[in-house]
Nucleic acid binder design. Structure first.
Length: 528
RNA sequence: GGCCCCGUCAUCUAGUGGACUAGGAUCCAUGGUUCUCAGCCAUGGCACACGGGUUCGAAUCCCGUCGGGGCCA
């Protein structure tokens, strides 16, 4: 056991997620938040959200809102915070100035920190010099022992200053819950700045104060904070705070194995949301990036993650962000979604793309008493024709297993919402068919379809499957190759080389439109 | 430049000295399933960074090399 540092005693689990609102919620931070959340819930502990907004230059409210909104969207909620109208908001460092000031003064009074009046130019010159003689750049400690009178004089002159921490030149170690013992020789490190003034504490200092004040038991954060840890431990020692447990989780990397960033493409949760990824897929995916259940299970809901999560099963090595796997999981969760819910989600994308529009009208069937109900009415944008939500549901249904992202619903089903289809006439040809044969197929379809009375996918299938088999023989092709009739049929309806099955599409399109599209295809063939 | 972390298929990973001719998932390929696509099913492809030790025996322990990454400025 380390006798020098006072480690926190086992007890209540309290963890925090402490983002700086200097950007949108990043996939990497979201995973850190998730691991903290899972650890808290698994251990009946508390999860706290602390917004580290001390950098006034780069902090933006927009980012803070994005972080909060997306955490909620993912299903990560915090348990505690200042009261805001009955609910609890997040803690904000910007609102905790007095607390930092108190501890800053304490360190100063006890001689554990000091005023430094060195100018940025001086510091820069010193750095350059050290570098030039092959030494690591490290603050010289010039202001460490400035006489009191000088300090007072400078302060009276309002000379700009920063506050530096007197780093004791000793070895510092901690036992990382994921990596084991990590040791640093702090004699190699210079006295670092802990505040740029009483009203602007810096990261390491504010973090240590808050972790103590919030009684954080476990600091779970990304690996890039490992080198901050010894500084924080020294600060804790100087302030008489216990040292919490630390767990540094591995980074998420881009395909080139460097830290995931903008140049690798989308990095923020909101972008993934917009692209049509489901929160359950993202959560499942992020959890598996660096954690595994110890067996070969792959699918995890938030509640099963809470049950299974353990820091012991967190990986040491960084994980490459693999979008193919995310797509796979997202496809899986889309297939699992109840149709009703999925339709709601897809409608949003269809409206966004301008394929349909929504208007609100009074219900034709008002409730027995009280105000009339307002119901949404969906219309096809191009024609103004009303489209029933039940119809949209059917469209979504036949594409449910084909979607990897919700946004794909647009390109996949646009033909349902278009008056005219535009496609290359040769697309109508199956294998070696010529114009004449395509025309024959379309004529045949038109004839057969006309006669069908019960217009549903089952009846259509029965009739057309039979017809298709006959047709290939009639035009002297390979017997049983139904493609000679079915392919032109499907292309005439969709204008696409890949789509859902023609019978289900025809059912949704209904008789009139189906036959109209066949006629259009005939015109297309003849027009050349 | 200094310090620190990491190293099993292309990717996420199982593996904690013998059950490993290294398992699962994604991915890729092939085949099956009502024309296509998707889904589903089946089959196949692909890895212990390298070199030394320790040991009867090493992916697993130790050392070194190499490689990747992070932090500081």
């Amino acid at each position: 056991m380390n006798s020098e540092f006072k480690f926190i005693q086992p007890g209540e689990v309290r963890v925090r997620f402490a983002p700086s609102p200097t950007g949108f919620l990043h996939i990497g931070s979201a995973r850190t938040a998730l691991f903290n959340f899972l650890f808290a819930k698994k251990n009946n502990g508390f999860f706290i959200l602390r917004i580290e907004d001390t950098d006034k230059e780069r902090t933006r409210l927009e980012y803070e809102q994005d972080i909060i909104e997306n955490l909620k969207w993912l299903g990560i909620e915090w348990d505690e915070g200042p009261d805001i109208g009955g609910k609890h908001g997040p803690y904000r460092q910007s609102q905790r100035g007095e607390i930092y000031e108190k501890y800053l003064k304490k360190l100063l009074e006890e001689g554990k920190a000091y005023y430094c009046f060195c100018s940025p130019e001086e510091l820069e010159a010193e750095r350059q010099y050290l570098l030039s003689i092959g030494q690591p750049p490290k603050y010289s400690g010039k202001c460490r022992n400035l006489p009191k009178e000088i300090v007072e004089k400078y302060k009276k002159e309002r000379k700009p200053f920063v506050i530096r921490f007197k780093v004791p030149p000793k070895k510092v170690w901690f036992n990382d819950l994921i990596r084991g013992k990590i040791e640093f020789d702090m004699s190699l490190s210079g006295d670092f700045v802990i505040a740029k003034g009483f009203d602007s504490p810096l990261y390491n200092f504010a973090c240590v104060v808050d972790d103590f004040e919030m009684r954080i038991s476990h600091v779970i954060r990304a690996e890039d904070h490992i080198s901050n840890t010894p500084k924080q431990i020294l600060l804790q020692e100087a302030l008489g705070f216990p040292t919490p447990y630390y767990a540094h989780i591995p980074l998420i990397l881009g395909p080139d194995r460097s830290k995931l960033s903008k140049r690798h493409g989308a990095t923020s949760i909101s972008e993934y949301k917009k692209m049509g990824y489901l929160p359950e897929a993202l959560v499942n995916f992020m959890a598996l990036l660096g954690w595994n259940p110890g067996d070969s299970r792959e699918f995890f809901s938030m509640s099963s993650l809470i049950k299974e999560f353990s820091l012991e099963n967190v990986q040491k090595s960084p994980a490459v962000f693999n979008i193919k796997k995310l797509d796979f999981l997202n496809g899986f969760y889309i297939r699992q979604k109840p149709l009703e819910k999925l339709t709601e989600l897809c409608v949003f994308y269809l409206i966004e793309a301008g394929l349909i529009k929504v208007e609100f009208a009074e219900s034709q069937y008002p409730p027995a008493y009280g105000a009339k109900e307002i119901v949404p009415v969906y219309k096809i944008s191009e024609t103004g024709e009303e489209i029933n939500i039940e119809t949209i549901k059917k469209i979504v249904e036949i594409y449910q297993q084909r979607l990897k992202r919700l946004s794909e619903i647009v390109e996949l089903t646009d033909f349902f919402f278009k008056k005219e289809l535009t496609y290359e006439k040769n697309l109508l040809k199956w294998k070696d068919m010529n114009d004449e044969e395509v025309l024959k197929a379309l004529d045949r379809l038109e004839n057969v379809l006309h006669k069908i009375k019960e217009w549903d996918r089952k009846k259509l299938e029965e009739t057309l499957m039979e017809e298709a088999r006959k047709f290939s023989e009639d035009i002297g092709k390979e017997a049983g190759d139904r493609g000679y009739l079915l392919w032109p049929f499907r292309v005439a309806l969709t204008g696409k080389k890949a789509s859902a099955g023609p019978f289900e599409i025809a059912e949704i399109l209904e008789k009139e439109k189906t036959i109209l599209r066949i006629k259009r295809a005939k015109e297309l063939i003849k027009s050349s």
